[in-house]
């Protein structure tokens, strides 16, 4: 029993760390999908940002500059997705898949060009853990939630902010309407294409925070393919959380907790592969159970053509 209580702190700490990149990417996906653009490219957006962050930090020695280069890369790749989907009316699923492959191939290519070989980059200065006075001293949960890197605190703040922006501001209303009934938004004099560009651009910036956390928070280096499906788990969290920021963050924490628990228990009792399946299986069940069609934004996936 004493052992169990002793394990709760580390498990919670690991839960928060596992969940942070997922929450960022899921919030990003939320902006894109609420505006009507499917974003299965979250994986690629995170990967290219994780790489760009390490490049920035490597050449300047500053994690903050790394975060900025990560944001820049995430934004550029997101804008490529928006350009394809919104302006050129390419298929959103195809474009998202291409973004993923482009990030994977592009980082592999640039690893050799910039660092001379593939695999893992040199170590860089990442974001150190910063303990918040008083709060981090709370027994059991203090260190887990309040002795983390700055990016984790940014994540805490962003969840309510995203909720507020999406559900309580005129911008959020327009964004949601663009994803549900673009015709009506157009009639009301709002530029549908511009709203979708905003949505996709925000998804790039948020996914970039997730990518930066991977390579400069969890680790202090870039490894090829290091996102390892996290973009798709974030997509699962978004759907599981029914396109709501609080729900998506909750789902991400749940998935993070499942991983954290597995790391602690004996592999023989519960093979890690089955825990890794959990987000995907749960998402399928949710989609099947709630009749998937009812919950996604209505106009998602369709290019909008002005008649």
């Amino acid at each position: 029993m004493q052992d169990l209580i002793g394990a709760i702190g580390p498990i919670l700490q690991s839960t928060v760390r596992n969940a942070t990149p997922l929450v960022f990417a899921a919030l990003g996906g939320l902006f894109s999908e609420r505006s009507g653009v499917v974003n299965i490219g979250l994986e690629g957006l995170m990967l290219i940002s994780a790489f760009a962050g390490v490049v920035g930090a490597h050449f300047t020695g500053s994690a903050l500059v790394g975060l900025l280069t990560a944001l820049g890369a995430g934004l550029i790749f997101a804008l490529i997705h928006a350009l394809m989907c919104v302006t050129f009316e390419a298929d959103q699923i195809i474009s998202g898949t291409a973004i993923n492959l482009l990030a994977l191939g592009g980082t592999g290519f640039l690893m050799v060009v910039i660092f001379g070989s593939g695999g893992t980059s040199p170590r860089v200065n990442g974001f150190e853990s910063v303990a918040i006075p008083l709060l981090s001293k709370i027994p059991v949960i203090g260190a887990a939630f309040f002795d983390q890197s700055l990016l984790v605190y940014l994540m805490y703040v962003l969840v309510p902010i995203v909720y507020f922006v999406v559900f309580r501001t005129p911008f959020g209303l327009r964004l949601r309407a663009t994803g549900e009934v673009p015709e009506a938004v157009d009639t009301a004099g709002v530029n549908v294409a511009r709203m979708r560009y905003y949505g996709v651009a925000l998804s790039g910036l948020l996914a970039a925070c997730g990518g930066a956390y991977l390579s400069m928070g969890l680790l202090s280096a870039f490894t090829e393919g290091m996102t390892n499906g996290r973009g798709f788990i974030a997509l699962a969290a978004l759907i599981f959380g029914r396109w709501n920021p609080i729900g998506a963050a909750g789902a991400a924490l749940l998935f993070g907790l499942a991983q954290a628990v597995t790391f602690r228990v004996n592999e023989q009792t519960l093979p890690i592969e089955f825990v890794d399946m959990l987000p995907y299986v749960l998402t399928i069940i949710v989609l099947a159970g709630f009749g998937g069609r009812a919950i996604a934004p209505a106009a998602i996936g369709k290019p909008y053509r002005k008649e």
Binding site: V38, I40, I93, G229, F232, L235, A236, I239, P271, E273, F274, D276, M277, Y280, V281, T283, I284, L287, A288, G289, G291, G292, R293, A296
Partner: peptide
């Protein structure tokens, strides 16, 4: 039978299949 969109389910089943094969 359940109205779940095949794009999302096939994406999710990719990872289930890979995890299953690796197990």
């Amino acid at each position: 039978y359940f109205g779940a969109h095949e794009v999302i389910t096939t994406i999710m089943l990719n990872f289930v299949a890979i995890d299953l094969a690796y197990y």
